[in-house]
Design a protein around this nucleic acid. Structure first.
Lengths: 211, 211, 211, 211
DNA sequence: TATGAATGAGACTTCATTCAT
DNA sequence: GATGAATGAAGTCTCATTCAT
């Protein structure tokens, strides 16, 4: 389900045993935690291993290098986000657009709140890539984008699929950015930003007679 | 003019002589170039000094540490962006909103194109900060935000200034994000994204009877 | 037949079954190949095991450590070299010295050409030994030396066996060195070096009235 | 004077100050000592730095990596050997060949005794090179070879220079090998080997009417 | 007996920053 | 003020070997 990002999350050895799988998860959890706490650069692989209570060698058995942890984390985030969206989308497919926007934005807000490392991880991934690779990252959004674009095309059959993809992309980027902004603020302001996000999206989509 | 970012661009010695000022600029130009070329982490202070044809010691006379280069660069970008906006805003203050949006988005697009390092620099700055500091970065936008908020309040006097600031912030974030997205695409797609940005903003602002 | 080199080729388990023996040989063949290709240090035991299509654990069942592979290889080379020499020597025991030298040098040349890893292996073995151990390596030549010394003593009965051993040792070392030199050159030069080796040896032995 | 071995002894910074030069020498002395004591692989750069009483960073300021130490050492050996030979050769240019051989072999013997690390260093250098590079090492001998070849050509004008170079190369290789052999033996045996070396060389050169 | 995941010491090297000259 | 040699803590990653299964 995860997109085939170039070298994405290339795990050295696919852990088959329960114990190994649990270790891999623990490593990723610790990495996420430390990346948030002290930043990617300040996080040493040894620190991750130590806190995850595995020897460094074990860490390197599963992840070829530090960067791979970042990619695996991104994959994990994406997969969760995708499932969240796909489920909600299925449930809301026939709802009026205002309600659809309302529920979806709330869901993403919840997701962002629950995964404070998401943006930090994506951010670092961007830094590690040259401009040329930058587009690869979009593939993370691709799956959601396709669903969204189809949805829009159904709501307004006069729009080309190409146009719908453009609208979908715009929508996704805007939501991500505003939700991230919201995360840096206190709860009161967060609500205002989220409300504003909904207002903005509804207005935008109505421009295309999507209702 | 530059906001008082914590430790922002604290230049050790204010170069008074022409030669020094020229050196500082050369150092910043080289730093910008290298940050784009190989990334912040891969750029060594020595490499910057060497390419700028100054001794490392001299670099450290003007910048207390590597991070200060990033901040100084951000300041420089901001100042240019602010002047660009302030000038254009003054000229367009009375134009219909659609035209205003059109010209301003184009101007920011041009700016982003001319300064390919802008986003990369801001990105790294974010990485270096803990979540707590993150709001500091917004101060870069603060000046533009204030002008924009006042402008909106004038166009629709029934809106509170607080609300106008929220709208302004939303607007700025959205423009930044979509323009950055545009930068990673080919020229044809860039035009589409920019057109979409304008559509979105116009629809959004019209929601508030700003015309 | 192999001399009792200290720790030499101490194989952990003498493989009695055909399959095991075949595995040991395959491991040694691969080790030889890799030592030549990338060098002893760059060759990992895992790489050897993988290419030989055996699990690492199995490799360690036959060889106590990496060094043992080197020693086993040296033993294998030696044994082959010894048989080659012993056979040829028997056939040439009565030939004039010039002809003897001619045939033996040619045979060693052929052997060196056929076993490009020989010198590399010996070389590494030397590196792994302290100066004190260095003499152990000579034991590889010991068997050939003894045959040669006896041969010389028969040809000139006025020479002590001790003296003959000295001459034999000198001869062996010289041939080894010059043949190795020859290996690093193109075919045309190789012939010249080999001819020179024969000239040198014949002159040397004639000094002792060995004809 | 040292041959331009590929990347040979590429010192990062040419120490111009007396203190630095002294440090470089101290580093090389310690490296030589440790390479002999525990072998190249077992010698860590940190150990070298520590014993030489310099910080590791300083070591790396002069030598780009561990291998560079080996090469610098080889260069240093060669230069000394070359000077030794050149001087002695000048003094002996007109002596009878037996006396010439006698003195030169003794001189090389002395040199080998004084520099117990010489062969170990060359040996390691060989290991680090692919077969393709192997010939580069001969360049170390090249200067001595040229002198020797010219000398032979003068002594027997009927020999081509090419032939003389072949003879010279043979001579040098043989002497090196036998002297190294001698080093691994006790004093009594050393004398025998050296005597044998002289016998062999004299017989060999007389073959070509060099007297 | 056969396997291969697990181990962790330790290697090399870098580079931001200082400070004596 | 200007210089750039000196510093050394710290980082990433490897790999020979073991031993539980």
């Amino acid at each position: 389900m995860a997109p085939d990002l170039q070298k994405s999350a290339k795990i050295r050895r696919q852990p088959k045993q329960a114990r190994s799988q649990e270790r891999v998860n623990r490593i990723l959890d610790v990495a996420e935690q430390l990346f948030i706490e002290v930043g990617y650069d300040q996080t040493t692989t040894r620190a991750i291993a130590t806190r995850a209570e595995v020897p460094v060698g074990t860490l390197y058995q599963f992840f070829p290098d530090k960067e791979a942890l970042l990619k695996a984390l991104a994959d994990r985030y994406f997969e969760q986000e995708y499932h969240l969206f796909a489920q909600l989308h299925a449930a809301m497919a026939d709802a009026p657009i205002a309600e659809y926007v309302d529920r979806v934005v709330d869901a993403f807000d919840q997701f962002a709140t629950d995964h404070p490392g998401y943006r930090a991880v994506l951010n670092h991934l961007i830094d590690l890539m040259t401009v040329a690779d930058a587009r690869n990252l979009d593939e993370y959004d691709q799956q959601i984008l396709v669903i969204l674009a189809r949805f829009l095309a159904q709501r307004n059959t006069s729009l080309t699929l190409e146009k719908c993809e453009l609208i979908a992309m715009t929508t996704i980027k805007v939501v991500n950015e505003l939700l991230w902004l919201s995360l840096t603020r206190d709860r009161a302001f967060q609500h205002q930003i989220i409300a504003e996000t909904k207002t903005l999206l509804t207005a935008y989509l109505q421009t295309y007679q999507i209702e």
